[in-house]
Amino acid sequence: MNIFRLVGDLSHLLAIIILLLKIWKTRSCAGISGKSQILFAIVYTSRYLDLPNFVSMYNTLMKIVFIAASYATVYLIYMKFKATYDHNHDTFRVEFLVLPSFVLALLINHDFTVLEVLWTFSIYMESVAILPQLFMVSKTGEAESITSHYLFALGSYRALYILNWIYRYTTEDHYDLIAIVAGIVQTVLYCDFFYLYITKVLKGKKLQLPA
């Protein structure tokens, strides 16, 4: 474990908590893409099937929290507060993300076993899972500031993981190209948002995308 990965995981945890609190407190999931949240639930389910393999208390605890929180979020969006779910703007065709991710996982992986292919699928899936949410923000042309804080924390987590991979390569000579390439793609997808967040939201303005 290193500081980059720890802060990255905590940023990830913060993002998930911000989102859950936003939906629970405002009793509304307006502006939130349910499709992205379903993709995240798929990501954690397919990645943490190795939950029984004990790595550390921290590892097991975080996996359980991520799985539970992702399903709780999907439940809140599609069941409890489904009246506030914005169908009209959450229209990204997720099949164009799931299928290519799965096919790519079958073609490019470290080991052609069920667990390893599913882990690889979760890595590819996670790198594009935020697209429906970013697409929804671009369609509505704006995002509540709490939603942009969620996106900033979520985007920062994988950006910090890149620093973790650099650190691990230089100190432990350990690297995983699949995770690194997907993590770079994932972080690049946030760049446009990061720019808007830093230039606008941090100055107290609302996140308005140029229409």
Partner: peptide
Amino acid sequence: QVEEPDHDEL
């Protein structure tokens, strides 16, 4: 037997 790559990261 290719040893199963361990994924110790979340």
